[in-house]
Amino acid sequence: MLDNSLLTDLFAPSRFGDIATANRIVMAPITRSRYGEDGVPGQLHATYYAQRASAGLIVSEAVNISAQGRGYAATPGIWNDAQVDGWKQVTDAVRAAGGKIVCQLWHVGRYSSVELQPDGAAPVAPSAIRAEGDTYTTAGFVPVSTPRALETEEIAGIIAQYVHAAQNALRAGFDGVEVHSANCYLLDQFLRDSTNQRTDRYGGAIENRVRLMLEVTAAVVAIWGSARVGIRLSPASPDVGNTPLDSNVMATYGHLIRELNGFELAYLHVVEGATGGSRDVPADIDLDALRALFAGPYIGNNNYDLELAIARRAAGKIDGVAFGRPFIANPDLVERLRHGKPLTVAPRASYYNGGATGYTDWPVAGV
């Protein structure tokens, strides 16, 4: 069997900012919905992540920064001490297995239900525009609720939630953090003019719509240092709630990326196309042109296989490649790719909920 490590440097040591990695393969954030209502990780989750620690870098599943930021039942948090202690168990297990892991900081914004919000409050968003679709609660799937628009004076409180979560991620032993600014969640909602109809300093012109994302990034960098902070974007994805794209993706995200360069971040992580779907994008969007604007390491994400990863790495389009669904059923994905071993395909029924079955019971291939 041909050793694919001879064809590419994807399997060679690398680094993203101050995070040194054994290879350029990244485990993408994958929500698996296997937590209790307290959002506290335990031994099951430590085992799951440690099994996948041969990835050069693990980006944790999206982690709620606050009770307000929560939009789905059975997802983890990092706003209280019990959650911090649980994540410490996870990071210790990953480190013992030789891996690196960063915490993805998540606020869903409008994509939530009053059934998930503290005291049954309305979800918050840049504008009171309801998303399409359903979300998951302990009672099953329910329609998402109409959000209320955040008052200008409340924005500082949102930034404080990110600060608190970033501090907790540091206490929990992560190697860094990723600011989740993709998939039409809160920060992306502020960025897109399709979901942001504000008239204050956080709405209207591009310079205003990028403001919250930049302020959050600055606040998180102040805690972690820029070289241990990454950010995730999805310029061409209509992901949750069938959210329309920004009316001028190239101008909006181009301006954002130029501003992000000032932070000298560890990496930019981009969903290339529709999250979990097609890599095709509208004719007026050039994701490679946006990538070229970023001055630091770039992680490509979305429907990659080894052939595409090798080709885009050889062309200088990516510095790292993120795999999501292949890591579900292939905890040893890096070695399978390196040695050309076949990949197991997880049935969709195993993606969410449950315990160890379909989560930590996948076999390794052996080399």
Rank of each mutant, 00 (worst) to 15 (best):
4 N>W: 12
8 T>C: 15
13 P>E: 10
14 S>P: 07
14 S>L: 15
18 D>N: 13
19 I>V: 11
19 I>H: 06
20 A>E: 14
23 N>E: 05
24 R>L: 06
25 I>N: 04
28 A>N: 05
30 I>S: 12
35 Y>P: 06
36 G>C: 08
40 V>C: 15
43 Q>F: 14
43 Q>L: 15
44 L>E: 09
52 R>S: 09
53 A>S: 11
54 S>M: 10
56 G>T: 07
72 Y>S: 02
80 N>C: 12
80 N>P: 15
85 D>M: 15
87 W>N: 12
92 D>P: 11
95 R>K: 14
108 V>M: 00
111 Y>W: 13
117 Q>Y: 09
120 G>V: 06
121 A>P: 11
122 A>P: 05
123 P>R: 03
124 V>P: 00
127 S>W: 00
129 I>E: 04
130 R>C: 05
134 D>C: 15
135 T>G: 07
142 V>N: 02
148 R>T: 03
151 E>D: 06
152 T>W: 00
156 A>K: 03
159 I>E: 04
163 V>G: 03
164 H>T: 15
164 H>A: 14
165 A>N: 11
172 A>D: 02
174 F>R: 02
176 G>H: 02
179 V>S: 00
186 L>K: 00
186 L>Y: 01
194 S>G: 04
194 S>F: 00
195 T>G: 02
197 Q>N: 07
198 R>V: 00
198 R>W: 00
201 R>M: 00
204 G>K: 04
210 V>Q: 03
217 T>P: 01
220 V>G: 02
226 S>W: 02
227 A>K: 06
234 S>A: 14
235 P>W: 05
240 V>R: 04
241 G>E: 05
245 L>F: 11
247 S>Y: 05
250 M>E: 05
254 G>P: 01
255 H>Q: 10
259 E>D: 07
260 L>T: 01
263 F>V: 03
266 A>L: 12
272 E>G: 10
279 R>A: 09
280 D>L: 14
281 V>W: 13
282 P>W: 06
284 D>M: 13
288 D>R: 12
289 A>M: 14
295 A>H: 07
299 I>K: 03
301 N>L: 11
301 N>Y: 12
303 N>I: 14
304 Y>Q: 08
313 R>T: 10
320 G>H: 06
335 E>Q: 15
338 R>W: 15
343 L>I: 12
344 T>Q: 15
345 V>R: 15
350 S>K: 10
356 A>P: 01
361 D>I: 13
362 W>M: 08
